[in-house]
Each structure stands twice: as structure tokens, then as C-alpha cells.
């Protein structure tokens, strides 16, 4: 393991946050480090936005495939600037009628249509999975999807409750699902701790 100044900074920052969880009296230190991190993250976001613009400007400039989308992106970047400018001009605040108009009538419908597309994509993926992965785990997955959709649908749910079979629905949607989720979360939690330890030890250095 090679010593470096960046590793030392990462180690001290990581330890400060970690110690804050176990020693409440040092909570202020944890808060301070997290605040600095949030501040740096906002600058990184700004840098990322310029990077995004640079990438798409470059694509338009070189006429790469998909440059039509890039023109749209650059144009979309300008719209909020204009709306915020208009709001600032009329109301003295950067967030007002025009910004909310752009958000409500451009961004929300676009994201909602992507969400609708997601429902179709997921149904298609579930059907395709049967041809791609026709094994026992795949079949269990498919049958579970089918049962949970069936048992949580409003009519079936009312029917089950009326005949005192609500427990069947709960067995699938709460007991079995919660058990499986806990098992997966346990693995994720242990993996998260292991990753954190490797970063603190300086084995993984994503900061270069």
C-alpha cells in the first residue's frame, strides 16, 4: 500500500464520520465533514453540468450519430435559464410562474411518459425472461410476480378478506417477501461495510 496525501484525507474524513456514529459527543465533527462533502458535491454537480454541455456541444460540432438529441439537450439547458431570468425580472425571485410552468408542462410530462414506458418495458422483460432463463429460480420469480399481482389486486383482495383468507395474501406479500428482502439486505449491508473498510484501508482508491 502506497502512502498518499489523498488517502490520508480520505482516511481522516472517513474515520470522523464513522466515529460520529459511535461517540455521540463527536457528532459535530461528523456533521462538519458531511457539510463540507455536500458543499463539494454541489461544485462537482456544477462541473458535471458543464461536462454534460461540453460532451453534447462536441457531438453537435462533430456531427456524431444522435447529434439531434444533443441539440435538444443544449436547447433544454437554455429554457430554464430563460424562465428563471423572466421570473427574476418580474418577481425578483429565480423560482416563480415561468419556472414552474416549464417544470409542470415540460419536465413532468416527459418523465411521466418515461414512467409509462417503464411499465411496458417491465412487462416485456418479464415475458422475455421466461425464454431466456427457463430454470427453477426464473420460474419461482415469474410465479411470485403473478401471485403478488393477483393477490394484491383490489377485487381478489376483497374476496380473500370476505372469506377469511387474508392470511394467504399476507403470507406471500409480507412473510415470504419480507424474509427474502431481509436476506438480500443482509448481504448488501455486509458488502457495504466491506467496501467502506477497503476504502479506509486504502485498498480501493477511487480518488486516484
Amino acid at each position: 500500500m502506497k502512502f498518499s496525501f489523498s488517502w490520508l484525507v480520505a482516511l481522516l474524513a472517513g474515520l470522523a464520520v464513522l466515529v460520529g456514529y459511535f461517540v455521540p459527543i463527536l457528532g459535530w465533527l461528523q456533521e462538519l465533514v458531511v457539510q463540507v462533502a455536500v458543499l463539494l458535491a454541489s461544485f462537482a454537480l456544477l462541473a458535471g453540468i458543464f461536462n454534460l454541455l461540453g460532451v453534447h456541444w462536441n457531438r453537435v460540432d462533430t456531427g456524431k450519430p444522435g447529434s439531434g438529441y444533443s441539440i435538444l439537450l443544449v436547447f433544454s439547458f437554455i429554457i430554464p435559464l430563460i424562465t428563471a431570468g423572466l421570473d427574476f425580472w418580474f418577481s425578483g425571485r429565480p423560482m416563480g410562474y415561468w419556472t414552474l410552468w416549464a417544470f409542470r408542462y415540460i419536465q413532468v410530462p416527459v418523465e411521466a411518459s418515461l414512467f409509462a414506458l417503464l411499465a411496458v418495458t417491465l412487462s416485456y422483460a418479464a415475458a422475455r425472461m421466461l425464454s431466456r432463463r427457463l430454470d427453477i429460480p426464473g420460474l419461482v420469480f415469474f410465479v411470485t410476480i403473478f401471485l403478488v399481482l393477483l393477490l394484491t389486486s383490489p377485487y381478489i383482495s376483497v374476496f380473500l378478506t370476505q372469506f377469511g383468507l387474508g392470511g394467504v395474501r399476507n403470507l406471500f406479500t409480507q412473510v415470504l417477501a419480507a424474509g427474502g428482502t431481509r436476506g438480500l439486505l443482509l448481504g448488501v449491508a455486509l458488502g457495504t461495510i466491506a467496501t467502506g473498510i477497503r476504502i479506509l484501508m486504502g485498498v480501493d482508491r477511487p480518488y486516484g
Binding site: 418495458t121 417491465l122 422483460a125 418479464a126 422475455r128 425472461m129 431466456r132 420469480f141 428482502t181 436476506g183 438480500l184 439486505l185 448481504g187 448488501v188 455486509l190 458488502g191 457495504t192 466491506a194 467496501t195 480501493d204
Partner: peptide
Amino acid sequence: DNIAAQAVLYAAAHEPLIGEELYAGG
């Protein structure tokens, strides 16, 4: 690390990584 995404990926990806498998890549 998100359970909902893992469920989606199990159906949609060629090679999904489930649970702690994600953290074993190195």
C-alpha cells in the same frame, strides 16, 4: 444495492447480480 432495482434487473438484464454478489466484483 436497491432491492427494487435487483428485482427489475433479474428480469431485464442478461447477467444480473443479486444481493451481495455486487460487492464481490474485485
